[in-house]
């Protein structure tokens, strides 16, 4: 049984003024335990909408989301969504350490090695040990994003949903963040559903890439990525398989963008 299963998801935003917006038409896919799976789609195609539905923050107009076979009706316990706007999702009144412990406080979790120790180890893993007492607004964008990821990992969720997490950091920082994310994924042995508009990023990170066309979201292509792990920013990206995936996905997206949606 897959860990997460999405069946015939459809969502329409009701908007009296500007007219209703069909964000997701018909979305079905599943995510297996331990998998790193990406969904690529152009901006505005309904990716955030889909994640909100999966995270139980938005009730879809139609369809079901099953997590461990249970229908999602509210924010599930073992799933956490990392938002695109990381700078807005961190609490400016909490220090980095306090931000990271937010989930533990909410879920009232305790770790055998002591919560403090657990958090400090996590800070070390994401390379923020020296910034525990700083406020998020004192950090750079890349660091803020790492705080947001560490906060999500701190409560050891089974599955992490990530919404274009590296969308607004510079290229160098992006590479570093991608590699640390892969490392964390392995270390914590979790499942990640990663959403992005960047085709290369999706291929580089994932075991499997789902491709969506323009709004409304629909899966137009699915590709299994067999590239060897651990991956390497230079070698993996120049591997023939990588190039082939990219060409294919790019073509698919172009085809589905050209025939303008009704």
């Amino acid at each position: 049984m897959p860990l997460l299963e999405v069946r015939n998801l459809r969502h329409t935003y009701r908007d009296a003024k500007r007219g209703d917006v069909l964000a997701i038409r018909d979305l079905s896919f599943s995510v297996n335990q331990g998998e790193f799976i990406s969904l690529v789609g152009p901006s505005g195609c309904g990716k955030t909408t889909m994640l909100m539905c999966l995270a139980g923050l938005l009730r879809p107009s139609q369809g079901v989301v099953l997590l461990d076979g249970q229908a999602v009706a509210g924010p599930p316990d073992n799933l956490i969504l990392v938002f695109q706007e990381y700078n807005k999702s961190l609490m400016p009144w909490r220090t980095v350490l306090q931000n990271i412990s937010f989930g533990l406080e909410i879920k009232k979790l305790t770790f055998p090695e002591g919560n403090r120790h657990h958090l400090e180890r996590l800070l070390k893993v994401v390379g923020l040990s020296d910034f525990a007492g700083r406020y998020p607004w004192e950090l750079s964008g890349g660091m803020q994003q790492r705080v947001a990821i560490a906060r999500a990992l701190a409560c050891k969720p089974e599955i992490l949903l990530m919404d274009e997490p590296f969308g607004s950091v510079d290229a160098q920082m992006r590479f570093e963040l991608e590699d640390s994310l892969l490392m964390l994924w392995q270390e914590f042995a979790i499942t990640i559903l990663f959403v992005t508009h960047d085709i290369d990023e999706a291929i580089y990170l994932s075991d499997r890439v789902l491709v969506s066309g323009r709004r409304p979201s629909e899966i137009v292509e699915e590709r299994a990525v067999g590239l060897r792990r651990p991956r390497d920013q230079v070698r993996t990206r120049s591997h023939p398989e990588f190039v082939e995936h990219r060409t294919r996905i790019y073509e698919m997206m172009r085809t589905f963008s050209e025939q303008s949606p009704a």
């Binding site: 009701r14 009296a16 139980g56 923050l57 938005l58 009730r59 009706a73 509210g74 924010p75």
Partner: peptide, 8 residues
């Protein structure tokens, strides 16, 4: 969970 908004 957020449902469809009621008319203002």
């Amino acid at each position: 969970m957020r449902g469809p908004g009621r008319l203002q």
